[in-house]
């Protein structure tokens, strides 16, 4: 099937073939001008310019927070922020990555923490210095209302702090810009872990299943599967009852022997 093979080579990532592209625009990487294709992300633009990234590149997918970038466009004083792997270049942008920021991080033992305001303040006393300037919110590339989770933490509403900060990628831009020198994202994860462990009710069905496994009740049925020939296994697989997509949570299968 030559058609298949041929197309497959074309379904590749647009890696280096930008070298022949014509839609170039100027950008200023740490003040130095490079001409790069206009559709690239800042991250790919660095590579197009000839960098081999070591810092400032992790997931390439907007979730690891390695590539915090600040930039300014000509004619305005506004400092913009973005993740280099997610932000498309614009003509004449002046940019730099901030791949690391030395924010304070407390060392704690999660088991000992109580879910109240004193706890977070004890580990992060700088929390009380927040002056409500809202710079953190304005600078978050994930559009998290950062100041709100900081005030929730300060109020002792740890669960709310956890929920608001959930999509934080710990890129550090908020900390880099905070006049009160907070490490917001470290406060955020502490709140989330306290919430996950101490505030949200525990999943009892998980404990129950652990117990069941420990009694050894699945040993024999599973060993039975291990020892059966492939035809039997296939048959059991094909005939296993499917929980319908729209079934309610309490749905139970007809066959209960192996539950």
């Amino acid at each position: 099937m030559p058609a298949v093979a041929q197309q497959s080579t074309e379904q590749m990532e647009t890696l280096n073939d930008e070298s022949v592209r014509t839609d170039l625009i100027p950008i200023f990487i740490m003040g130095k001008e490079y001409d790069v294709p206009s559709t690239l992300t800042i991250q790919k633009a660095f590579e197009y310019a000839g960098y081999q990234l070591i810092r400032g590149c992790g997931c390439r997918g907007g979730i690891c927070g390695a590539c915090a970038t600040v930039y300014r466009l000509p004619g305005t004083a506004k400092i913009n922020v973005g993740l280099a792997c997610q932000t498309v270049v614009q003509a004449n942008m002046y940019l730099t990555m901030i791949p690391f920021f030395p924010a304070n991080r407390a060392i704690y033992n999660l088991d000992d923490l109580k879910p109240d305001a004193q706890t977070v303040l004890k580990y992060y006393p700088e929390l009380a210095k927040c002056m409500g300037c809202n710079t953190c919110t304005k600078s978050c590339p994930m559009e998290i209302p950062v100041m709100e989770y900081i005030s929730a933490a300060l109020r002792g509403d740890i669960e709310q702090a956890a929920e608001i900060s959930m999509s934080c990628v710990m890129c550090g831009i908020c900390a880099a810009r905070c006049p009160a020198e907070l490490g917001q994202y470290n406060i955020g994860i502490m709140c989330r872990r306290i919430t996950g462990k101490h505030i949200k009710p525990r999943a009892e069905h998980v404990r129950e299943m652990i117990e069941r496994v420990n009694t050894g009740r699945y040993e024999e049925p599973i060993n039975g599967l291990i020892n059966s020939d492939i035809e039997t296994l296939r048959k059991l697989y094909v005939e296993r009852q499917m929980e319908p997509h729209t079934a309610p949570e309490e749905w139970t299968p007809d066959l209960k022997d192996y539950l």
């Binding site: 299943m209 699945y218 599973i222 296994l233 697989y237 296993r240 309490e250």
Partner: peptide
């Protein structure tokens, strides 16, 4: 860090068990 969807485990004993999880993984 990039995984989005979820993590499998048979934890609901009224409808599931490691036995069925085993069958699914093998299939």
């Amino acid at each position: 860090m990039m995984a989005e969807g979820g993590i499998q485990a048979a934890t609901k004993s009224w409808k599931d068990s490691p036995y069925y999880h085993y069958l699914d993984v093998m299939g």
